[in-house]
């Protein structure tokens, strides 16, 4: 085997291990793996501060969705309106506790945790400071939590449930429902506009600078 090439300036496809020269792209461009087509880099014009702003929006909307009335139901003169957190607390008894925790975590707790992790990792950079300890771990965990945050699936689930019990009782949709939908839309927008490898590069630059000045 010939001597391994200098790894600097090379990138590797995470899906198929194909080696590439690091592409130099303008914002809006995209570089795909030459073999399997996985997107290697897709730089965006959006700044770290803008990504953080979008993520904070998701956080505020999620908190609203958690505590404001979500759905009201009335049947035969009885009325019951509850927020997601009310519903969760009312059901956290016995065998249902693990189920309630799973649902609560996947629809609001994990999305909120992702907001906090992204801010922990990136906020000092947007304000020109040195990264906090554990910034890399926070950004990595934010990425790993992504498939487990399922607010968008929950929204479709609500629509199905509404049809299912429409003939049992009459239902009114509360503000929290709309806030959750907005949170899902803003979150999707944020994911689409963010170039994760750019976040990693900025974090690396900031860490190097912080170490040099220390």
């Amino acid at each position: 085997m010939p001597a391994p090439p200098d790894p600097r300036g090379l990138v590797v496809c995470p899906r198929c291990d194909a080696l590439h020269h690091a592409p130099s792209l303008k914002a809006g461009g995209r570089a795909d793996c030459a073999r399997c087509g996985t997107v290697l880099e897709a730089p965006r014009r959006i700044s770290v501060a803008e990504v953080l702003a979008l993520s904070a929006t998701v956080g505020v909307l999620m908190l609203g969705a958690l505590f404001l009335p979500f759905l009201s139901i009335s049947s035969m003169g009885l009325r019951n309106d509850s927020s997601i957190i009310d519903a969760a607390l009312a059901f956290s008894t016995g065998l249902q506790t693990p189920l309630v925790l799973t649902v609560l975590a996947s629809i609001v707790l994990l999305p909120l945790a992702r907001v906090a992790l992204l801010w922990w990792a990136m906020a000092p950079l947007a304000f020109g400071g040195a990264p906090l300890p554990g910034a890399r771990a926070a950004l990595a965990l934010d990425e790993d939590l992504k498939p487990w945050a399922m607010a968008e699936i929950f929204v479709v689930g609500v629509a199905v449930a509404l049809v299912k019990i429409a003939d049992l009782a009459s239902l009114t949709i509360g503000p929290a429902f709309w806030m959750l939908i907005c949170a899902v839309l803003v979150g999707t927008l944020q994911e689409a506009l963010t170039d994760r490898s750019a976040l990693w590069r900025e974090l690396e630059v900031a860490r190097t600078r912080a170490r040099a000045s220390a």
Partner: peptide, 19 residues
Amino acid sequence: RWSMIDIFVVAITSALVHL
């Protein structure tokens, strides 16, 4: 992940109908 939808439907239905 989308398989979780039925779990959410069950959770919502039961949470709502606790009249």
